[in-house]
């Protein structure tokens, strides 16, 4: 296989007989930002906890950096930085002291603390007790902690949850810079597609514990591409004529709906219809937003 940084095989976790994570096959390539999407309670956090060895899978396996997580857990965890659900911090300590507690465990040089604080833009507040921080600052401190050990992989679970728009933007810019500036692969989970689509190169969508979509964001965009809707005087006749010309379409509420059509085809369609004396009332493009597509995927039956 090519460079999968994380690969899970039929990963399952059941709680009292109910599968919270159901045969999930996650494939994350080096250097990408992987958006892990799904509604609340779909199994994102459970999957992530298994990736970090916080809980044991009921079935299936996890391979990270090409090694089995079960057998080489410490070695793998040394190269992963993570932020799960909400940021962990010791409120009575300052930002620097919080990072120092983690630095002592990871055994990295003291200079790293100033570096990561600079990266997340907390240098100014370094000496303040963390209990006085805003949620956005705590979240950035959490990312600083995740970066402290110079990881190759960053796992961020809902890093923008509960932040205001400017906080979301800050975190997003921070994450976007990771592969480019530091060569770090990122797994970022969210329940909102709009949050991830602007930074992720690949998305995996999980629904009721099952992976229902896993591909590049372009492929997802292609699926959401619009259809052309044409209102004409005699729709049935007109559709027959167009089908004879080799276009694909169907009748929808008395209008002709044509799939994925480029500009030239639309021009040819209109010309043909006019030449056959159909009155063309309207030519409209109907776009499904990514969000609509996402909701459709997430809302579909389990067989998808």
């Amino acid at each position: 296989m090519s460079e999968w940084i994380i690969q899970t095989k039929d990963l399952c976790k059941s709680y009292r007989g109910r599968l919270a994570v159901d045969h999930v096959n996650l494939n994350i390539a080096r250097g990408e930002i992987y958006g892990f999407l799904g509604p609340n309670g779909a199994g994102k956090t459970t999957t992530i906890r298994m990736l970090l060895g916080l809980i044991k899978p009921t079935r299936g396996s996890v391979e990270i950096f090409g090694k089995s997580l079960k057998r080489e857990k410490l070695h793998i965890l040394r190269k992963i930085g993570s932020l799960v659900e909400y940021p962990s911090y010791y409120g009575h300590l300052t930002a620097v002291e919080n990072l120092e507690a983690i630095r002592r465990i990871l055994d990295v040089p003291k200079t790293r603390i100033a570096q990561v604080l600079e990266t997340v833009g907390l240098t100014k507040d370094a000496k303040r007790p963390v209990k006085g921080f805003s949620l956005g600052m705590k979240q950035r401190l959490g990312i600083a902690a995740a970066l402290l050990g110079e990881p190759e992989m960053l796992i961020l679970d809902e890093p923008t949850n509960g932040l205001d728009p400017s906080g979301i933007l800050e975190i997003r810019e921070l994450i976007k810079a990771m592969p480019k500036q530091h060569g770090i692969t990122v797994l970022v989970s969210s329940h909102l597609l709009s949050e991830v689509e602007q930074m992720a190169s690949t998305v995996g969508i999980i629904r009721q514990g099952r992976m229902v979509f896993q591909d590049t964001i372009e492929s997802l965009r292609r699926q959401s591409e619009g259809s052309i809707s044409v209102a004409v005087s005699e729709p049935e006749e007109a559709l027959l004529a167009l089908l004879r010309m080799g276009f694909r379409g169907k009748l929808e509420n008395g209008r002709i709906a044509l799939e994925r059509t480029d500009d030239q085809s639309v021009a040819r369609i209109v010309k043909a219809l006019v030449e056959q004396n159909h009155a063309v009332y309207r030519v409209e493009e109907k776009r499904k937003s990514l969000e609509e597509l996402f909701l459709q995927i997430v809302g579909e039956g389990g067989g998808a």
């Binding site: 906890r49 970090l52 060895g53 916080l54 410490l74 070695h75 965890l77 040394r78 992963i80 993570s82 799960v84 659900e85 962990s88 911090y89 010791y90 983690i102 465990i105 990871l106 902690a145 050990g149």
Partner: peptide
């Protein structure tokens, strides 16, 4: 903090 500590090596 348990998650933070135990996701470290």
């Amino acid at each position: 903090g348990w998650k933070l500590l135990l996701s470290m090596p």
